[in-house]
Simulated scan of single mutants.
Amino acid sequence: MQEVQNKKIEVQELGLKDYKETWDYQEQLFEEILDLKVKNRREDTNLETPNYLLSVEHPHVYTLGKSGDISNLLINEKQLEEKGAKFYKINRGGDITYHGPGQMVIYPILDLDNFFTDIHKYLRLLEEAVILVLKEYGINAERSDGETGVWLDVGTPFARKICAMGVRASRWVTMHGLALNVNADLGYFDNIVPCGIKEKAVTSLNVELGKNQVDMEEVKQKFLNHFKDLFDAEF
C-alpha cells in the first residue's frame, strides 16, 4: 500500500538543553516513527507518519561519530572537566565535532518517504538551506568536494568550515543534523581535529561579520524559511 505523504513538520524549540537528554529525545521520536512504519507494512495500514524539527543549543560537548577516530579528541578527561565540557560517542555519520552555546543546532527527524527517498539529496538540501541563510548576510558559502557541511573560501589556503553536519537514517527516517556556528566560542575547536580534517580552520557568523553577537532568532527564522521551501514542507 502506498504510504500517505505528510509534509507537515512540527518545529520544537528546545532552548539550551543537555546533549544526552536531547539525543535520548531524538531516539524516542525516531523509534516512534520507525514503529509506525513497521506497523503500516505488517498490517497493511496507511497511518500517517509525523515529522519533527528540533532546534536547540547545547552546553559545551564533543561528539564522535561511529566512523570517527578518538585520536581527533586532543584533550583528556581531566582537561574536559576543566573546560566544563562533556564527550559522547554517538551513532551518526562523520567524525568528531563540538557543540556549544552560540551554535544553532538543528535535528530534523523526518520520514523521507513523506518527501523523497534520497539521502544524498537530503544532505545537499540541508547544506543549501545554510548556504542561502549565509547569502542573506552577504557571505558566499559553498560545499567542499568530499567534505560534508558548509565552507567559506573553498580551494584557498583560507578555507574554513562554518557549519558541520552528520546524520543517521534507517528505513528513510532521519536523526541528528547540522550545527551552524552563529556566535560560537571558537576556542573550543582547538581541542579537536574538527570532523577529522587536519589543517582546516573553523569560523563563526559573528566573526565573519565582525560583530560581537548576531541575532540567533533571526538566523533561525531565515533557516526555517529556506528549509520549508527546499523541502516543500508545512510548519
Rank of each mutant, 00 (worst) to 15 (best):
L186P: 02
E77Y: 05
K86Q: 13
W151Y: 07
R160P: 06
E199T: 09
I33E: 05
H120E: 02
E13A: 07
G100T: 11
P101E: 10
K78C: 00
D113G: 14
E3N: 11
I119P: 00
I70P: 07
L80H: 09
I197M: 12
K86L: 08
K161C: 00
L205D: 04
G102K: 10
D18S: 12
F223K: 11
N114T: 04
K135M: 03
V133R: 02
W172D: 00
D18T: 11
R160M: 03
I109H: 07
G100L: 09
L73C: 04
S204A: 13
A179P: 11
S204G: 03
E21C: 00
E147N: 10
L36T: 13
K39F: 13
M104R: 15
R168W: 00
Y122G: 02
I162E: 06
N51Y: 07
A179K: 07
V105H: 09
L134K: 02
A201W: 02
D232S: 14
K83F: 02
K220H: 10
N46E: 12
H99Y: 11
D145V: 13
L34W: 05
I162N: 05
H226Q: 14
T174V: 01
L47P: 01
V56I: 13
K222R: 15
Q2M: 13
L64M: 05
E234P: 00
L152K: 00
V133T: 11
L209E: 03
L14A: 01
T156G: 10
K222C: 10
L152G: 03
F231H: 01
T156C: 09
R124A: 08
K7R: 11
D153Q: 14
R160H: 11
P50N: 09
K228W: 00
T148H: 03
L74N: 09
L132W: 02
S71H: 15
F87R: 07
D153K: 15
G102A: 10
R92W: 08
R160Y: 08
G100A: 08
L29C: 02
L180F: 11
S204W: 01
K83Q: 07
L16W: 00
E82T: 08
N225S: 14
L74P: 06
Y98G: 01
V130F: 04
S144Y: 09
L123G: 03
I33H: 09
Q12V: 14
N51A: 07
F227P: 14
L186G: 03
Y107P: 01
E48H: 05
N181D: 02
D145Y: 11
E234G: 03
N140D: 14
E142I: 02
H60Y: 13
N40V: 10
G155A: 04
F30I: 05
V154N: 09
D145Q: 14
N191H: 15
A179Q: 07
P50R: 14
L152Y: 01
S204M: 03
K17N: 04
L132N: 15
F30R: 08
D113L: 09
F235I: 12
Q221T: 15
F231N: 00
S204P: 06
T45C: 08
A129M: 12
Q28I: 00
I90D: 05
D118R: 10
E27L: 11
D24E: 15
A184K: 06
T203Q: 07
